[in-house]
């Protein structure tokens, strides 16, 4: 098997897994309707004090709820595949549209958090590893302990107080469309993304440190030194690529935390993303919107996970062709 075919097979395999996961999630989301207490029809007709049985039956028939479960399931899946997520009970607007509006904002926030976390975490980890056992190492490692233990909402509040209220450098909250004012868009992204990514940065720094220390002790590093390669090149070109494999794993594992964090961060910074949509929908019991946003969040999670796995394969040829 040549290299290209190997990579292609790897990608196809990962894609197939991701699609299967999406299908399972869609099925679970569909069953929320049946697991959750309360009759959606009664909710829909909530404005009327006591709807007549005829009204209820008519509504059921209109929504297709009088069909067998399997039929409903199939038609729900068909709709989902066509990105038709139904309409909001309260606003009547298309759920698909509002999800499509909000999803990129959450994706942007999450990716910005990962980028910021990597930009901070990797150099900090390398610095700690190269200065192992010194004051620098101790200081950086203690900082990561703080980073992991400070909750998102406290960090967010502190950052708002410092950078918006005291220094006035950055806006405290809100969102600006990138098409209308790009610089302002990014100014408003900085604080929420940093808040969201700080804990991840600490995890990345720790993993980079221990992983670098392990790699720098490996035989091939000594062999590279014996070849006459400079220390800088050994670290950035050889050690880091080997050390980054567990770091990417950490990013993948922390994705769940990151998505959980968006709920708080979006609320705190008034960021109109999927989590905001979901929280609002849950409090107003707007089931189609809940379903749609849960599905979208799950899809986002699966998508980023897929990206992590593909990066994995690019980094390490042994994972690409691992024998089962």
């Amino acid at each position: 098997m040549n290299a290209l075919a190997g990579i292609l097979a790897f990608v196809v395999q990962k894609l197939a897994t991701a699609l299967t996961q999406l299908f399972v999630v869609a099925t679970l989301v569909f069953s929320i309707m049946y697991i959750m207490p309360g009759d959606p029809v009664l909710l829909l007709l909530g404005s009327e004090s006591s709807p007549s049985p005829e009204t209820i039956a008519a509504m059921r028939s209109r929504l297709g709820l009088d069909q067998p479960v399997l039929t409903q399931y199939v038609s729900w899946l068909t709709d989902v595949v066509r990105f038709d997520l139904g309409n909001s009970i309260l606003g009547g607007y298309s759920v698909g549209q509002v999800v499509a509006d909000n999803l990129p904002r959450t994706l942007e926030l999450g990716l910005a958090a990962i980028v910021i976390a990597s930009l901070i975490g990797v150099p900090v980890g390398i610095a700690a590893a190269l200065n192992r056992g010194t004051l620098v190492d101790t200081a950086l490692t203690s900082m990561t302990t703080i980073g992991i233990s400070v909750p998102v909402y406290i960090l967010g509040a502190l950052l708002i107080i410092l950078f918006s209220l005291q220094l006035g450098w950055l806006p405290s909250s809100g969102y600006m469309d990138i098409g209308r004012n790009a610089p302002e868009h990014f100014r408003r992204l900085v604080l929420p993304a940093f808040t969201l990514g700080f804990g991840l940065a600490a995890s990345i720094a720790r993993m980079t440190r221990s992983s670098m220390l392990e790699i720098l002790n490996r035989d091939f590093i000594r062999a590279l030194r014996a070849k006459g390669m400079s220390e800088r090149r050994i670290i950035w070109q050889h050690a880091l690529r080997n050390a980054s494999i567990p770091v990417v794993t950490i990013i993948g594992l922390q994705l769940g935390n990151l998505m959980g964090g968006t709920v708080l961060v979006e609320a705190m910074f008034n960021w109109p993303g999927l989590s905001t949509l979901l929280v609002d929908a849950v409090s107003s019991r707007d089931y189609p919107v809940v379903q749609g946003s849960v599905l979208a969040i799950a899809a986002l999670f699966i998508f980023i996970n897929l990206a992590v796995e593909l990066i994995y394969g690019l980094l390490d040829p042994r994972i690409r062709r691992r024998r089962t």
């Binding site: 035989d219 091939f220 070849k227």
Partner: peptide, 20 residues
């Protein structure tokens, strides 16, 4: 000098090559 005038071969050849 290393690698050019004086070079070295190690015991465990598989571990002495960068795996990636």
């Amino acid at each position: 000098l290393r690698g050019r005038r004086i070079s070295m071969i190690f015991q465990d050849p598989v571990a002495s090559l960068d795996p990636v």
